[in-house]
Amino acid sequence: MREIFFYLAAAGAVFFSALMVFQRGLYSAAVCLLAALLQTAVLLYLAGSPLVGLLQVIICAGGVMVLVVVAIMSSSEPKAEPWARFGVPGLLAPGVVVLVLIELLLAVSGSSAPAGTAGAGLDARLGAVLFGPYAVATEAVAMLLFLAALAILMDEKGRTS
């Protein structure tokens, strides 16, 4: 069963990422990227790291995609390349995402334990590594996130003034 989910997620990730390149519209490209990121989360879960898979769903497929959709809605769509011919119909796009979410839930609930190549011990040691030898890098990334939040505030301040 684990192998089936692995190959299903791998094929889905490659298919949707290739489809994203040839999408005519930005909205359909974003939907394809969302599907590819959710399939990637399945792959990360099956790699034995459910924490990283969860982070992928929350941050990349969740927060970043919300920002992308808001940016698409806020801006006029520029003209696409002539070779970008595909377009996911509007009614089909939610169906694709729902199908991928169902696959993600089945993959998570189908196996009682994360099917890792090195077991579940890696996630347990992750915190010790992040706040041990890589503490400076962790603090630097935290500062980078803070600066990114400041970028939004400065952008908003510049727009209102």
Binding site: L55, C60, L67, L126, Y134
Partner: peptide, 23 residues
């Protein structure tokens, strides 16, 4: 686990990059 730590840091950097890029 250093590989997983790198992935976590990369995901955080990707979020910051997306925020700044979209701004």
């Amino acid at each position: 686990p250093a590989g997983l730590a790198a992935v976590v840091l990369i995901i955080a950097i990707a979020a910051a990059e997306a925020v700044v890029g979209l701004c």
